[in-house]
């Protein structure tokens, strides 16, 4: 992949490379800054709200601690076993386990299936490759609400209710379609010549896949992995319906703070804390992106 150098060369050759304060350029920065403000706004508000108490909230919209309201650490302490709260440490670890477990399985199975769909022709009755791909994706169409009871009965029969393994099983069905979708497009963008050269060298398809294609597929795996982690980490509904008291995931533990007296402070603090690991992920993905490593990942 040489996109970085290419785009650098490209930009050097374009007139924009000499930054002049043209109206278009100003408009561009204005737009970027406006959008940034829009993106940041809820987080800033959550940050300041997380240091309020009931009086701080009912005094109306205020932003500056000490000056406009008296700060309180109640919101934060309530997340770690303090008064008026819950301890989210254990749910945090559970969430990490379920998200990673389900993501790894989904990506493994999804990548294999995607490679098959990209390189070979299949026919099951009337279904061709495109239909099979759509079959995978279509699993995400069903509204989750209605799956609550069937999944519940299924895990009941398997003895997996209220366990991490049960949640992982269900999440695989939710995440694999995403992995397949991303990876099919990705494999399609890797030239078939690579495979053919390997075959001529005497590799069978499995060896070819492992030795030749997979290393080239790393950026695609990053995108697919990111989507799996995001959708897994943020699922609330199944984590909520298929567990009782022992296995609690982070969103469920956080929502447990949403009582009739809505504690704006604790919910704000928890919103910030729950995205922390995923923001790290955003940095990782961006690194790949900027290195040009993702080039082709989604073509």
């Amino acid at each position: 992949m040489t996109d970085l150098t290419q785009s650098a060369a490209l930009s050097r050759s374009e007139p924009e490379a000499v930054p002049a304060l043209r109206p278009g350029l100003i408009a561009k920065y204005v737009f970027i800054l406006l959008w940034s403000a829009f993106v940041v706004f809820p987080f800033l508000w959550a940050l300041t709200t997380s240091f309020k108490d009931a009086n701080g909230v009912t005094n109306g919209a205020t932003w500056l601690p000490w000056i406009q309201y008296r700060p309180s650490t109640q919101g934060w302490s309530s997340l770690f076993g303090g008064a008026g709260g819950t301890d989210i440490t254990r749910p945090y670890l559970n969430s990490i386990a379920v998200t990673l477990g389900a993501s790894v399985i989904s990506i493994t199975l999804g990548t294999l299936a995607a490679y098959g769909l990209s390189r070979f022709t299949f026919r099951f009755g009337w279904m061709r490759n495109a239909d099979i791909t759509f079959f995978f994706i279509s699993q995400r169409i069903m509204p989750p609400i209605v799956l609550a009871i069937p999944f519940f009965l299924m895990l009941q029969a398997l003895g997996l209710l209220d366990t991490l393994a049960g949640l992982i099983l269900v999440y695989v069905a939710l995440l694999m379609p995403i992995a397949v979708w991303v990876m099919v497009d990705f494999f399609n963008s890797i030239p078939r010549g690579l495979d053919e050269m390997a075959w001529m060298d005497g590799c069978d398809p499995v060896t070819t896949f492992v030795r030749v294609i997979l290393p080239n597929a790393l950026p695609g795996l990053v995108v697919a992995g990111m989507f799996c982690v995001i959708f897994g980490w943020n699922d609330f509904f199944f984590a909520f319906t298929l567990t009782f008291t022992k296995t609690q995931l982070l969103p469920v533990a956080i929502v447990a703070l949403n009582s009739s007296v809505t504690p704006w402070w604790a919910l704000s603090a928890s919103a910030l804390i729950s995205i922390a690991p995923l923001v790290l992920l955003a940095f990782l993905v961006e690194r790949f992106l900027s290195k040009g490593g993702l080039a082709g990942a989604v073509r």
Partner: peptide, 13 residues
């Protein structure tokens, strides 16, 4: 003992 209750704090706490 497994207990289900309302969100925190009302009754839950």
């Amino acid at each position: 003992l497994n207990v289900i209750t309302h969100a925190i704090p009302v009754i839950g706490e």
